[in-house]
């Protein structure tokens, strides 16, 4: 399955992936209007420390601990993509407690927020990948 992979060597820590991700979630067509004066909640997040940086988003594990531990059944695997039904999710954060990558975060709406590879918006393929200026984030088949 195609996944988002991060080539740490090439991550510039520019955080554009976060903004493009946040933009993708809005389904707006102008990024400025979509994100102006907003605190963004991206599904991909950059870690930075001592000159090292890289972005982290859901790995879409084959054995997803988050989905297995989901108490509501909101997290399921749909054609390989670990997807959340935000209507069902009650924001208990058991998934956050279980995700070994820290790739799930609380959303403002009380549910959780995570990367669904832009399968749930109009972008079609991951916006973070398209927006990465240095090919540090790629969307490809790599084995896990």
């Amino acid at each position: 399955m195609k996944r988002v992979y991060v080539n740490e060597e090439w991550c510039l820590g520019c955080h554009l992936c976060e903004y493009y991700c946040a933009f993708a979630q809005t389904n707006e067509n102008d990024i400025a209007r979509a994100l102006k004066d907003k605190v963004i909640k991206p599904g991909i997040r950059v870690e930075e420390h001592n000159g090292i940086c890289f972005a982290v988003s859901c790995r879409h594990c084959e054995e997803p601990l988050c989905a297995k531990s989901c108490i509501t059944g909101a997290l399921t695997v749909v054609s390989g993509i670990v997807s959340v039904d935000t209507e069902k999710c009650i924001g208990c954060y058991t998934c956050i407690l279980n995700c070994p990558y820290g790739a799930i975060s609380p959303s403002e709406k009380g549910a959780i927020l995570k990367c669904q590879l832009c399968s749930d918006n109009t972008h079609g393929s991951p916006a973070c990948v398209k927006g990465c200026p240095n090919k540090a984030i790629v969307f490809e088949e790599r084995g896990l």
């Binding site: 992979y5 870690e47 930075e48 890289f54 982290v56 820290g102």
Partner: peptide, 23 residues
């Protein structure tokens, strides 16, 4: 580091290459 700032940063490159890079 990880206690204050949870992240894969604390885990070192090899671990991240594997988990995030699929290598």
């Amino acid at each position: 580091l990880v206690r204050k700032a949870p992240g894969l940063m604390a885990f070192g490159r090899v671990y991240r290459d594997k988990t995030l890079g699929g290598k």
